[in-house]
Amino acid sequence: MKPAAFDYIRADSAEEVVQLLAEYGDDARILAGGQSLIAALNMRLAQPRVLIDISCVADLSRIRVGNKNLTVGAAVTQAVAEKVVQDSNNIPLLAQAFPHLGHFQTRNRGTVCGSIAHADPSAELPLCLVTLGGAVNLRSWRRRRRVAASEFFRGVLTTARETNELVESVEFPMPKKQARYGFVEVSMRHGDFALVALAGAVSDQGVRLGVGGVADRPWVETLPTTSGDDLDAALEDLAWKLDARSDQHASARYRRHLVRNLGRKLITELSS
């Protein structure tokens, strides 16, 4: 398990990164924290010609807690973001989700944007981003564009990002007043990818339930109510329509069971 050969470029600015992407396109991969990429290189699941290391790019290393959004730059590690979230004491969904995210040793290197760009359907951060209705800022040599999280994730490991684009930053909306947020995850072991992860946001405006680990992408559903038969029926529908798959760890039926039961439990807790 050793990587195939590649050229290595350590970029000093975002400008350089997008120029390099314009030059190499799909022949290049962005190396931010490398916690998924280098594992894939070691297994030779990826054999890019060029790695563009963005970990030292200062203008991508910014994280900002604003009034509307928590904006996280492409080189910001999960550990740094976790600390900011903990210190701000005001970003409840992410605060609950971070401890599930791999292990502190991988959060020390892994980046927030890397996890978003990788689009693993069981990963926690993409789930939080869609549940909160966040956005992804993409930048290419020619343009910048902002894509809503709900549009960004297209399927397993597949996103709206073009090969010449960099996920420059992501925006997690700050919590709404009066809204309550909750995150639950069932995994086989602590720190594993979720068998099912649920992220809930309950406010006067309604109930949003995000589901990870079931469909081919993180999914968010607006539910009609917070209790009763209508909620049960909506959850039943949701459980089925995500087209759950069976794998060696859990059956499709098990995943549907968790969506129904933990979904109801989470929403009930958030609305009580």
Partner: peptide, 9 residues
């Protein structure tokens, strides 16, 4: 083929 960061020849 490329699917995300994975490519398979």
């Amino acid at each position: 083929l490329s699917v995300g960061l994975v490519n398979v020849s």
